[in-house]
Design a protein around this nucleic acid. Structure first.
Lengths: 259, 259
DNA sequence: CGCCATGTTGAAAATATTCAAAGACCGTGG
DNA sequence: CCACGGTCTTTGAATATTTTCAACATGGCG
């Protein structure tokens, strides 16, 4: 049985919701920020024109998260929803005996906050310094009524997350360790994860995070990386810098897609 | 690597969408059926009063599925959504090399059809003779606009499915075989799965189905059942009839919850 | 420069899978 | 009504994959 070491180590000064470092309403002058926001085309904001987006801006707050800070705690009242505008976060479930399953890595443009009841049932923490846009759930519902496109975006976002979760279930249940790691790297490449100009991936997560996402141990993940390296499929600048040298080969190693 | 035997065996005469055995619009006289429907309190129908439900009935068709019949094919255009009104179905993804992951077992009251794009990315098949209520997606959207409670129910349903998928991911990634089987039986007991008057579970799925749901092989599942039996935690009438004799013990064997 | 986190690698151990065979159950047809 | 055939299930033994335990390497940061 695998118990992570990493997850027991709390962020230096974990801030509970409502006590987040900064939570400033978008000043009217700053509503321009929405126009140039990396999440401008996200599910929630994408359906609105620049005029309407000011309305959204007035009903949201921008929040900065330092590395390790927690945005959402398991059990927290689901008062807010969030759109990631910069950085990288992880959503995870941890059992009381310390086993952790990372449900998703979240990058800019992604949406957090589709609770079925009054509370969240997972944690969300910042892997690196990040920024999110916060919406009061009540106000978001009003916005959804006012702007059908927001409602539709919410629905699309929920559906996509569900499909991602299904794909993840396929990987966890039916793929080998090697296939999981290969598929993970391909997914990362297709995501909003940071890349250098030459396309080198800058992983914001540790081997332990990857292991807890893929249902493996960090050693198994490390061995898979080493194997990929020795096969010449990837190149490792540092442990966090991964260059995919042979995408086709990587696809083959990821095994047949789930159709 | 595990490849199921079961899944290669197509239903005798698989019917493609639109060619389903019966698809009759709810006759006006039959709209009463909605009132007494087992899915009357489901997410979609639950928010409406008996007057409004007639409107829903007029916009839906009742469909009968025989054992093994397929309701949704991976790749199918997502033209319809469904509410299960009777029976048991399985939603699954199968890769082209034959590996199958069952995503969910669906019982009466549950909702199928939250596509992020134009197509479904999983199959849905009947485990036993079943009945579903079919909604044209377009009409469902109109109904959602007309009745905010339907829209809210849809959203709640989507959120619940997402949370189920997350819980499933935790099980697949971090639980042992024994824990998965124990937790599965507890989940079934809490579900709408058929039970006798004395509370004995009537499993509509095979060991192979359970294995493909839990990311195991059928042999491993069978061994876990045998173990539970020898521990006196369950009693097996037949392979499909499971009596949970010691729920507390079963909970302990399911391991600590994911919080 | 050195410490502490993170990452890599090796060997032993555990868990689950694979392969194999036999038993139970169900529906069908004689 | 019972025998038959096929499918599903159970159980055993060998094998494979992944985990666990342990030691060492690396590297970022004070």
């Amino acid at each position: 049985m695998h118990t992570t070491g990493k997850d027991r180590q709390q962020p230096v000064a974990p801030l509970r919701l409502g006590a987040v470092s900064e939570a400033n309403p978008h000043p009217i002058l700053e509503s321009l920020a929405c126009i140039t926001c990396p999440a401008r085309k996200s599910d929630i904001c994408g359906g609105l024109d620049d005029e309407e987006i000011r309305d959204l801006a007035a009903n949201s707050q921008r929040i900065h998260l330092n590395v390790g800070e927690t945005l959402v705690w398991d059990g927290d009242g689901a008062q807010y929803s969030y759109v990631i505008t910069r950085g990288a976060l992880r959503a995870s479930k941890t059992s009381d005996d310390g086993r952790r399953q990372i449900l998703d890595f979240l990058f800019s443009g992604q949406f957090v906050g589709i609770p079925s009841d009054a509370a969240y049932h997972f944690d969300v923490e910042a892997l690196i310094d990040s920024e999110v846009c916060r919406f009061d759930k009540r106000k978001l519902e009003q916005l959804m009524t006012k702007y059908p496109n927001v409602e539709k975006g919410y629905r699309t976002g929920a559906a996509r997350q569900l499909e991602d979760a299904y794909e993840h279930a396929y990987a966890l249940g039916r793929r080998t360790a090697m296939e999981r790691v290969a598929a993970f790297l391909l997914d990362l490449r297709a995501s909003s994860c940071t890349k250098t100009a030459t396309g080198v991936l800058k992983l914001p997560m540790t081997r332990s995070d990857i292991a807890d996402f893929l249902g493996l141990t960090l050693e198994t993940v490390s061995r898979a990386f080493s194997r990929l390296k020795s096969l010449g499929v990837i190149r490792l600048g540092s442990a966090q810098e991964v260059e995919i040298r042979d995408p086709e080969r990587l696809k083959a190693l990821a095994g047949s897609a789930s159709i």
